[in-house]
């Protein structure tokens, strides 16, 4: 028999998490699909369930100094409506599902589900987001790439809940998010691409490039980004072919029911080229 709990405060929830192995339940839009059963029967949860949506403190979204903090209870709609949500995150979240799902699904859930096709994750990588993991008696902060360890896998520890997503609000005069889905709306990703760059005085002051659904986890390379940082337009032109080749080597997608490896790779590189050619170079001129 599967039990479920509906705590109304975070300490209460963490206490419960400490005592037993439970499935945290946020919006349920992944869980209810995963454990879907015959109509009129209960979803097939293998473990007890901890509802998180009755905890008001988790729903907060606020800016602390230069950091945007999104509570684990905040829905995708909340994230869209919040005025200081970075553009590419808003676009990424708007590309997820449809209004009815976005009204219950959470950003934290999208992250914890750790699907290679999780659309917010791609944007959050490019935004250098981190997550706060709390348990009774403590919390830790992990950069997102350290939290997501594989398809459906995270480094969430026993007794821990993800309580907050943190995004440093950096200057970025160039922000691009592109999703290629199976149709024009309410679609799962074949791949996605996020780019954030700050151009100052004709040189790249900072840049982040992330590719979603083209590998087990989001593809982002700080090393390659470092190569680009500080470069001028002329220097980028010289490096152009190398950059494409380097990314090409990193992007190793698969075939599945939604698309093909060949397509995913080619389009990911096309989007990168387009960003470099028309986005970046234009901004630098």
């Amino acid at each position: 028999m599967v039990n479920s709990y509906r705590p109304t405060t975070l300490p209460e929830a963490l206490k419960l998490m400490e005592t037993r192995d439970m499935i945290p339940f946020a919006g349920g839009t992944d869980l209810m699909v995963k454990y879907q059963s015959w109509k009129g029967t209960l979803p097939r949860f293998p473990k007890d369930v901890l509802f998180l949506n009755h905890i008001p403190s988790l729903k907060k979204i606020e800016v602390n100094g230069e950091t945007l903090a999104i509570g684990a209870g905040a829905t995708l709609s909340d994230v869209i409506d919040y005025p200081r949500t970075p553009d590419i995150l808003r676009e990424a979240v708007l590309s997820i599902a449809a209004p009815g799902i976005r009204n219950i699904a959470t950003l934290a859930g999208n992250i914890c589900n750790a699907s290679p096709a999780g659309d917010s994750i791609c944007a959050l990588y490019a935004l250098d987001a981190s997550v706060i993991l709390s348990k009774s008696g403590g919390e830790r902060e992990l950069p997102l790439p350290e939290f997501i360890t594989g398809p459906g896998k995270t480094s969430l520890g026993r007794g821990e809940l993800l309580t907050e997503v943190r995004i440093p609000l950096k200057e970025a005069n160039l922000q691009v998010f592109r999703k290629v889905g199976t149709r024009k709306a309410n679609a799962l990703s074949k791949l996605s691409f996020s780019a954030v760059a700050e151009i100052k005085g004709g040189t790249i002051d900072g840049i982040a490039l992330a590719f979603g659904a083209v590998g087990p986890t989001v593809v982002r390379s700080k090393e390659l980004e470092k190569k680009l940082t500080g470069k001028t337009l002329e220097e980028i032109k010289v490096l152009y072919k190398d950059i494409i080749d380097d990314y090409s080597a990193m992007i190793v997608p698969i075939d599945d029911q939604r698309s093909t490896a060949v397509y995913r790779k080619q389009v990911a590189l096309n989007l990168l080229k387009n960003f470099l050619e028309s986005g970046l170079l234009k901004e630098m001129q």
């Binding site: 509906r6 339940f25 349920g28 009815g100 009204n103």
Partner: peptide, 19 residues
């Protein structure tokens, strides 16, 4: 419509809809 918002009721367990 749940608390003023459109939602898919197949995604919502009763426990989440309390109140």
């Amino acid at each position: 419509i749940l608390d003023g918002k459109l939602v898919n009721s197949c995604m919502v367990p009763l426990g989440a809809a309390e109140g």
